[in-house]
Design a protein around this nucleic acid. Structure first.
Lengths: 278, 278
DNA sequence: AATTTCGGAATGTGATCACAATTTGCCTTT
DNA sequence: AAAGGCAAATTGTGATCACATTCCGAAATT
């Protein structure tokens, strides 16, 4: 992750001389001003979803700001938004890192996905009837990514495939929840793919597309559910049940005084505002 | 909302002379430093959950900072976290306000609740067997709040009752999602209560407690589900089906398009940013 | 009297500085 | 050679300033 995915306006050289008052490049544009914070958040989000941020990877304000060529300020707000979605973990000492995967977390993420996503798919079915070809195209691109071994491209395409379906449900409430779940498991999936290889991947996308073409809600629900269980279940379990190999990448804050090593993430977040409504 | 719920350290007089280096009250404490941002977030969260922030209510950085006696900086990050949870709405022009309730939003929130909360309750049942008395005590306090008409206290207690149950499920993933949902519907419920009165409230808490005492998972699931449907369904529909009292005023900057991560609601300003309607 | 226009006030955004708490690397000591 | 300690570097947090944009109200115009 060295630049913004949508537009590579600025490279990582200067610490963003000015961004507020020096952007009169386009004037006839009726579009809203591009907020740097949103670009940063989109960049980090993309990095998480494509596996460029590995679990345990330390994320620093100034580091990220330097990479993206902005000041630490928009990064702070972006990080805050991601951490509210539990996509980033704020340790008790304030340091930020990509959450590490545990068995419990993985099972619960799987659980949440099965609970929400097949449901969204069913809701979306009526509006998907004319998108089967588009989905098939995306699925073809996924297959290409699988044979070429481009894990980042695969993850991006797979996300697009699923959310193309879920978005059609038109849900303003559940869709963001599903996005939060994806942001949490995606970094780990990258690790898992890197360990077991992409050849082990077998999705149920073609069953889902067929269900859409047949306008079969129950078939679509089953396809999505099995897609989740197959993709995450097999790979996740096979990786999590193995003892932690030393291949863990940067291995940043391993020796943090995690006094309660049993589970430090007791609450919602490592250091969440203690909501004591009484 | 004029001060922090947990500790009333500073009153709203000075614009926070110093907060970074002026908190050496406790030194032998190994606990993490109390971050102002988290206190602000907790205050806003509490204000939302107790209905002190009415849908449509404008939230400004400097205004909130002044009320809480802090600088706008921690407020910015707190607001960012809440908006990531869709608890606050960032309009295309950047202004922040409590989201207004629409029919679609309400139905989806109801939907999400029914999808997640009964499930959490069932998961929590084994660990709730020895908490029935505590829950009964909370429920008694709820009844007191209902007869006295203290809506804020009622909402706080009701939240505590439900989350006492959900927390016991020990879910690190789904629980935050449910919290996000609550933060979204709570402000509207306060409005609804203010309009139809608290006397119309009939919860299924006693059925839930009985189910816990009997260790009956299905009964607990049904109790929670009916509690949600009864409480939100009746009141919500009766209020939403009425035409809005005020004609839709100025419709804030519609011409701008935002580049946020998820979709964003716009327009439909139903009430002026006045105080609570009751 | 209704509409338009214009200017001050308010608001969000980004940048920068100061500072406390850690972390990290190097050095000294045993 | 290993353990301990000290200082520099790093990091998150809060405050403050500058600025573009937007909002609001009053004054001028039609």
């Amino acid at each position: 992750m060295n630049d913004f995915p949508p537009d590579r306006a600025r490279s990582s050289d200067a610490p963003a001389s000015n961004a507020a008052g020096a952007a009169p490049a386009k004037e006839a544009e009726p579009t809203a001003r591009v907020v740097t914070r949103d670009r940063v958040e989109a960049a980090v989000r993309d990095a998480l979803l494509t596996g460029q941020f590995v679990p345990g990877h330390a994320v620093t304000l100034r580091g990220l700001a330097g990479q993206l060529g902005v000041s630490p300020m928009p990064v702070r707000e972006a990080i805050r938004g991601l951490s509210a979605a539990n996509a980033l973990d704020v340790l008790p000492n304030g340091r930020i890192r990509v959450p590490t995967m545990t068995r419990q977390r993985f099972d619960e993420l799987l659980h949440a996905r099965v609970l929400l996503e097949p449901h969204l798919a069913m809701l979306a079915l009526p509006k998907l009837l004319d998108q089967a070809d588009d989905l098939a195209r995306i699925d073809d691109a996924i297959d290409v990514s699988l044979v070429t071994g481009d894990v980042a491209a695969y993850m991006r395409r797979n996300h697009e495939f699923h959310f193309r379906i879920y978005r059609a449900a038109g849900s303003q409430i559940i869709l963001p929840l599903v996005e939060h779940v994806w942001l949490q498991f995606a970094p780990f999936m990258r690790t898992a793919y890197g360990r077991v290889g992409t050849s082990a991947l077998e999705d149920r996308h073609k069953e889902a597309i067929a269900a859409i073409r047949e306008n079969d809600a129950e078939k679509l629900r089953v396809a999505i559910e099995r897609d989740i269980l197959d993709g995450m279940g097999l790979i996740g379990h096979s990786v999590l049940d193995e003892p932690p190999v030393a291949a863990a990448p940067p291995e940043v804050g391993r020796k943090i005084r995690s006094a309660s090593a049993t589970q430090r993430r007791s609450g919602v977040k490592a250091r969440s505002p203690s909501k004591s409504p009484d």
